[in-house]
Design a protein around this nucleic acid. Sequence first.
RNA 1: GGAGAGGUAUCGAAGUGGUCAUAACGAGGCGGUCUUGAAAACCGUUUGCCUUCACGGGCACAUGGGUUCGAAUCCCAUCCUCUCCGCCA
Length: 431
Amino acid sequence: MLDMKFVRENPEAVRENIRKKFQDAKLPLVDAVIELDKRNREIKGEVEALRANRNKLSKQIGGLMAKGQRDEAEALKAEIAKEADRVDRLTEEERQVEQELHKNMLLIPNIIDPSVPIGKDDSENVEVERFGEPFVPDFDIPYHTDIMESFDGIDMDSAGRVSGNGFYYLMGNIARLHEAVLAYARDFMIDKGFTFCIPPFMIHGNVVEGVMSQSDMDAMMYKIEGEDLYLIGTSEHSMIGKFIGQQIKEDELPYTLTSYSPCFRKEKGAHGIEERGVYRIHQFEKQEMIVVCKPEDSMAWYEKMWRYSVELFRSMDIPVRQLECCSGDLADLKVKSCDIEAWSPRQKKYFEVCSCSNLGDAQARRLKMRVKGADGRTYLPHTLNNTVAAPPRMLIAFLENNLREDGSVAIPKVLQPYMGGITELRPKKES
RNA sequence: GGAGAGGUAUCGAAGUGGUCAUAACGAGGCGGUCUUGAAAACCGUUUGCCUUCACGGGCACAUGGGUUCGAAUCCCAUCCUCUCCGCCA
């Protein structure tokens, strides 16, 4: 969400930004909010003068009553009553205009960073850099669920019966590997100086509105029936929501947090053939990193954060690349974002495993977070988030890249302590 | 789930229908005096948002409604916290 003052003073910049994101349908919103803002200020001017007068007279009534001058007090009451209708009407219109204004403001996308490449959709995202050799072995890599099955590590059939499509049972060593990756990712971030957190997995509607756009909310969030609670789609939601309405002391910045949570997503929309198995599911687990910092520091944190993901994946011998989101693929709240994609030797292409975003002050403004500066002024902090590791999807990359020709899977050194010291997984039956 | 108490500024906390909410008082922050420096003490200062060139004005006492000329204060609903009981991993 943008600052209304900014829109008022820079309407062309806001329009240009909408065009860069190929959301021309939203262009009329700019004139609409400027018109609503104008009307809002007109109403305020009038209604506030009326209120000022009423407040003044009411105070006089108080004085007269204290002195027992009832008649004079009644005369003033009558005077106030004359304006009451107009005040009520204007107050009602003010409420409506403000509501409409707020609704439209939520739809106008955040101003993207000048460095963001311009493009229509995800097909125009830009590969920035590769890390590690994208290696294709000379034997066939099976589909990830087949690899897992070779270790008796997954049961999709039961999950279908119990919970439906989009759920899974992980079993045995695959389940253990899933936990090992999370534990390793957690300790990796703790070693970087981040504070480990376990947040609530359900949050109130006003927090949901503060951290994400309406369209994301509709496509992602599960609501608990009969209560004002939603299942989180990522721990970012409860970790940023943590600061709702809070005044933050400047010397406490930056907050560098790493949170674990299960994530629940409706995943509305078509699922392609490559999204079978545990690639796109309604429930998964994730270790996340969150930074709340001064505005001038957010780009430096952004750079640091995506590099942490690269470092983590490289420590498990998984080749990755950084893919920068183009303007059209960037969610409305984001200033800049990139994906870290892992190499799939089976598909011979990269696929998304991490998503790093700088939200600027958009979430902070929506949540009414503020920082008290050393000079006494208050300002909005910037918020960032990035995936550390999100199994089971990241297990796809892990298994495909560590699979050997004999069907066994090497456990990288960094994960061995979390796997009871074992160095490899051996398939149940040799194939 | 039942009973009770409560939610006021950065924090603690007073205020129970008006004329100290321009939010008492205390702490913290900031500035100063004193000091070689620091601590202590003392003096001053310090809520946010909107609007205005400015003077000023409006709004906000968990949130949303209501009563009233006037609500932190009274009424209703919702959310949250604490205490006790019940249930529970």
